[in-house]
């Protein structure tokens, strides 16, 4: 961005309803000083922590999803002769008490943990946005939905999650098989217990946007409620939703690991980072490094996502942007 561009105030010039321009064609046509998303990217770039956090998160995702293709040792293969080995070329992180390769177990565990994190976040986000938009847009639903949100906020979440894991484990296992069943159970229980903050933030934003002139204009040309929400309201509340998405991944990963750590998560032969850490605590005295790797992986993932969310919040906030 040159100095000349900096003088152009970005707020107010671009009409708010084109918050998400169909990139390319529209930009050539109207040619604003800078498209909003480039503006956002510029602010995001200047936040070093966010940039590195995002990069690190990308690397972790690539590692857990594509890594197993390159490093094709079976994480469940037991090689009892090679148990409790230290780091070597064949096993970069060593092997565990049954001779399973820790490196491939870390990747398999990460795949589960990250998948749970992302899926649970998407579910919580969908629920939260739905409740938030409905409560903000339809006055009749507002009181009811917000009381519901308050009620959910008053529930003791971790104990409740533990109870849910206890209760629904067996029926779901029977219906979908042990791995699929637990995956669905964990994702649904985390999603159902973590949508409330998103709902509150989205509702607040929708309430403010509903009173803006462009909504009135859209209403005056006969836009239906569904169209209104999809085309005008949702794109404008995208930024708080994106920020809670990143933070949601972080909480979901930590929650899943806590459940696994308490022995109420995935079954023992199915590695996740929390489970690996839990199993390693039995060998704390002899092999403390085994605790270290999964713990480091969880912490780094959450740290990178948190920094990413921090940067996104700054970048998407028009009051901070341009400063």
């Amino acid at each position: 961005m040159t100095d000349k561009d900096r003088l152009v105030p970005d707020e107010g010039l671009a009409p708010a309803s084109t918050a998400v321009p169909a990139a390319g064609t529209l930009e050539e046509f109207t040619k604003p000083p800078q498209s909003q998303w480039r503006e956002v990217w510029h602010q995001f770039k200047s936040h070093k922590g966010a940039l590195y956090g995002g990069l690190l998160f990308l690397v972790i995702i690539l590692w857990v999803y594509l890594g197993p293709l390159l490093w094709d040792l079976d994480p469940t293969k037991i090689d009892i002769r090679a148990r409790n080995q230290g780091p070597s070329l064949a096993h970069p992180f060593g092997t565990d008490q049954l001779g399973r390769d820790t490196f491939s177990r870390m990747m398999a565990g990460g795949k589960t943990s990250v998948s749970v994190g992302i899926t649970a976040m998407l579910l919580a986000l969908g629920l939260g946005s739905l409740v938030g938009v409905l409560a903000g847009f339809f006055k009749r639903l507002d009181g009811l939905l917000m009381r519901l949100t308050d009620l959910f906020l008053a529930l003791p979440l971790l104990p409740l999650l533990l109870v849910m894991m206890l209760l629904f484990r067996d029926p779901l296992n029977a219906a979908f098989g042990p791995e699929q069943g637990i995956f669905i159970l964990i994702v649904v229980s985390i999603g159902v217990t973590s949508w409330m903050p998103t709902a509150r933030i989205v509702r607040g934003d929708v309430l403010a946007i509903k009173e803006r002139e462009f909504v009135l204009a859209a209403r005056s040309i006969g836009t239906t409620n569904t169209k209104m929400i999809l085309r005008h309201i949702l794109p404008n509340v995208l930024s708080p939703i994106m920020v809670s998405a990143t933070l949601g991944i972080a909480t979901a990963i930590i929650t899943e690991s806590s459940l696994s750590f308490l022995g109420l998560g995935f079954p023992p032969d199915f590695p996740t980072w929390g489970r690996l850490l839990f199993d390693a605590t039995d060998y704390l005295q002899q092999y403390p490094e085994r605790v270290f790797w999964p713990g480091l992986a969880i912490s780094l993932t959450v740290l990178s996502v948190n920094y990413l969310g921090d940067g996104l919040r700054d970048a998407l906030d028009p009051r901070i942007r341009g400063r």
């Binding site: 972080a250 929390g274 969880i298 912490s299 740290l303």
Partner: peptide
């Protein structure tokens, strides 16, 4: 924020 208690505790 990022280091869960079951890791920092064990550490």
């Amino acid at each position: 924020f990022s280091v869960p208690p079951f890791f920092s505790g064990v550490l």
